[in-house]
Write a protein that binds this DNA or RNA. Structure first.
Lengths: 234, 234
DNA sequence: ACAAAAGTGTTACGTCTACACCCATGA
DNA sequence: TCATGGGTGTAGACGTAACACTTTTGT
């Protein structure tokens, strides 16, 4: 009987491998995405995710971190892979596949001048303009993943400054879930998780009375994760 | 101010892009994985996932379906992308990144002779031998995803024959979740979803009394999905 | 004194869990 | 008749959802 052997060492042809980043941030009560304006032809001037080719001696993840650092000045950012986009015709130039990562950044941390120098802009998540190639699809998939993930991991903390108030956190979840939450139930649920540390400071930027600031308790969170708890926040 | 422009059209270097498949099946009350024995050097004789290079004129997904069809004879299989594995040193030969897909197949449908002719074997999920390269990691990640996914989509139906009994379905979920479920509660929950159609036939292969066979109701399932229901089956 | 956001408790409801017995059948 | 797996109901625990008023403080 004939054997169709799939031989790894008589490979066909090479292609370009790129990485693109969905960079999410949270500011002014809105979820935002960082996109940039292409400065090269073709499609110069169109909006696009931030990306780069992956070098031969570089992990794909490394490449994504490099891009992120180049554009925002940030390192040690929460980043996760969304997936590979590999349609044969996705790029009209060369055959290129793209590994998309999504990153969550504290919007006050990044280097504004650096970002501007790259022609990058923050858009409200509902006002992102049409993007180049299959980047619209990447965004849609990324949002879906973010929303699903927020249900079982308290991922939102990555988007807030180190000190934050409960109303801020609630607003963030409302934006992610796209629905309003009951303040009493939200507060009750969050506090019952024991992953918030109340501080003795208040943030008065949003009200006369001011709201207490909290920090995220990474230690308790790790324990909770181990115990198999899941974080559904409706 | 100097501008670090990331230019998509002065790309660095190309690399190989491969696709590997995690092929899951369910038989004899056990979740199984199809792996194959490499027939080429290096690492000839070692166990490996089934894979292939992606051709230049081929979608990544297409490539995975091609491999699956070559090995099992099956088309129209449930398949989803797990992610890209892109560490620089993952393959000791050439720089290659791999896009991993996982597939769920009805274990009685596949072409046994074809599978054997490729040196492929089914292993109990708990008895899979060590795999080549980073394939162990792929398997671990795939199992995690399968387990998570089974919580919010009735994914298990893909692994059973078209007609199945409730005890069979329960067994499958027990294997996926790695814990025993209460038969009464399981049955109650499943039936309440209204996605099972009871048939007038019984399967007597497991008991004298026999268990009623059911079909999956795709139409109702689609409606349920739209209504935002989620399928947690504990 | 008033506007505006922060903070607090209780009750009703539905869902999940735990649990024990009868049924149908072939050998 | 008996051994084996299939099939059924109920009560208590638990978590979620709904709901309105008081507090603080800068202007």
């Amino acid at each position: 009987m004939p054997e169709t052997i799939i031989d790894f060492y008589q490979p066909s042809e090479k292609m370009y491998v790129a990485t693109d980043c969905l960079i999410f941030g949270f500011d002014e009560g809105q979820l935002k995405l960082l996109v940039f304006k292409r400065r090269v032809e073709p499609r110069k001037g169109e909006w696009s995710l931030i990306g780069s080719f992956v070098n031969l001696d570089e992990d794909v993840e490394e490449a994504a971190k490099r891009v992120l650092a180049e554009i925002t000045g940030l390192e040690n950012v929460y980043m996760e892979q969304l997936g590979a986009y590999g349609a044969a015709e996705r790029d009209p130039g060369y055959r290129t596949i793209s590994i998309v990562q999504y990153a969550l950044i504290r919007i006050n941390d990044y280097d504004k001048k650096l970002v501007e120098s790259h022609g990058a802009h923050w858009f409200d998540i509902n006002e992102v303009p049409g993007l180049v190639l299959d980047h619209d699809k990447m965004l849609a998939d990324g949002l879906e993943k973010l929303r699903r993930k927020a249900r079982y991991q308290p991922i939102g903390f990555e988007l807030l400054p180190e000190k934050f108030t409960i109303p801020q956190l609630q607003k963030l979840y409302e934006v992610i879930y796209q629905k309003e939450l009951d303040g009493r139930n939200f507060r009750k649920k969050l506090l019952s998780l024991n992953v918030l540390i109340k501080l003795d400071e208040k943030d008065k930027s949003n009200s006369r009375r001011g709201a207490f600031l909290y920090k995220f308790d990474h230690k308790n969170y790790q324990q909770l994760l181990k115990s198999g708890y899941n974080f559904e926040i409706a």
